[in-house]
């Protein structure tokens, strides 16, 4: 030996990087960039599908009878056409339509659609206008006592305003929507696997917004009386668990 051992050089940020550190950096930096692309892709690809739902960009014009079930719904002239829920822009229900209940109206708005459920968002400041013509009346349907299991969400996000518009991360939003007057619906699965959307009311057929607020986006069991009103499933809630 001719002198004391030489120590491995250390890395100092303001000095040239020693070879052994450079060797590791040459591997680790590209590896991290590859990790960014691969991990992001894997995580993004594994997201749950929000299911088919859409929201048209262009406003369309519709005519029909405005009914309150107790939420505002537009009944088209032909019975085979699906009814449309009416809501306002943002996280608000369509308010102040009571006087037009039972009248024939013309409305313009953008269409939200999931499966056979339809909704019309009325642009702010342009509500329904009464027009002459025939009207339809809601038939008083027979109520069947039922127990339904599912998740309570706001109908607007669920029908395509937000995708996904259910689940835990959407809970604050759904709560806000229901608080703002958007009709609450129960999303459940039928025996044959179809997804069912059931509009929720109180036992007295009034808006159930306040009643369901603490139970949104959670698994719930609802008991009540189920009716079909012009093609809309409506549950008058007796109890929530």
């Amino acid at each position: 030996m001719t002198g004391p051992r030489r120590a491995e050089p250390i890395y100092v940020g303001y000095l040239p990087t020693p070879e052994r550190h450079q060797r590791l950096l040459r591997v680790i930096v590209p590896a991290m960039l590859v990790l960014a692309v691969v991990s992001a892709g894997l995580i993004a690809g594994a997201q749950r599908s929000p299911g088919p739902a859409s929201w048209s960009a262009e406003a369309e014009r519709f005519e029909g009878t405005l009914v309150l079930v107790p939420y505002p719904v537009l009944l088209p002239d032909r019975e085979s056409d699906p009814p449309m829920y009416l809501v306002a822009a943002g996280k608000f229900g369509a308010a102040g339509l009571g006087p037009l209940g039972g009248r024939r109206v013309e409305v313009r708005g953008t269409v939200l659609r999931r499966d056979n459920a339809l909704m019309l968002e009325l642009p702010s400041g342009a509500g329904p206008r009464e027009v002459p013509g025939p009207t339809r009346a809601l038939q008083d349907a027979v109520a069947i006592p039922v127990t339904l299991r599912g998740e309570i969400v706001d109908s607007k996000c669920c029908l395509g305003a937000m995708k996904p518009g259910e689940g835990k991360t959407h809970r604050a939003c759904a709560t806000l929507c229901v608080r703002g007057g958007i009709p609450p619906v129960l999303v459940s699965t039928a025996d044959d696997g179809r997804t069912l959307y059931t509009l929720l009311t109180t036992a007295e057929n009034g808006p159930a917004n306040t009643l369901v607020l603490p139970h949104i986006a959670e698994p719930v069991t609802l008991r009540g009386a189920l009716t079909d009103r012009a093609g809309i499933r409506v549950l008058a809630i007796d109890s929530i668990e």
Partner: peptide
């Protein structure tokens, strides 16, 4: 890293 991650996530999503 940030740009690649975000681009990959949004692109694949």
């Amino acid at each position: 890293f940030i740009v690649l991650y975000l681009a990959s996530f949004v692109g694949v999503g």
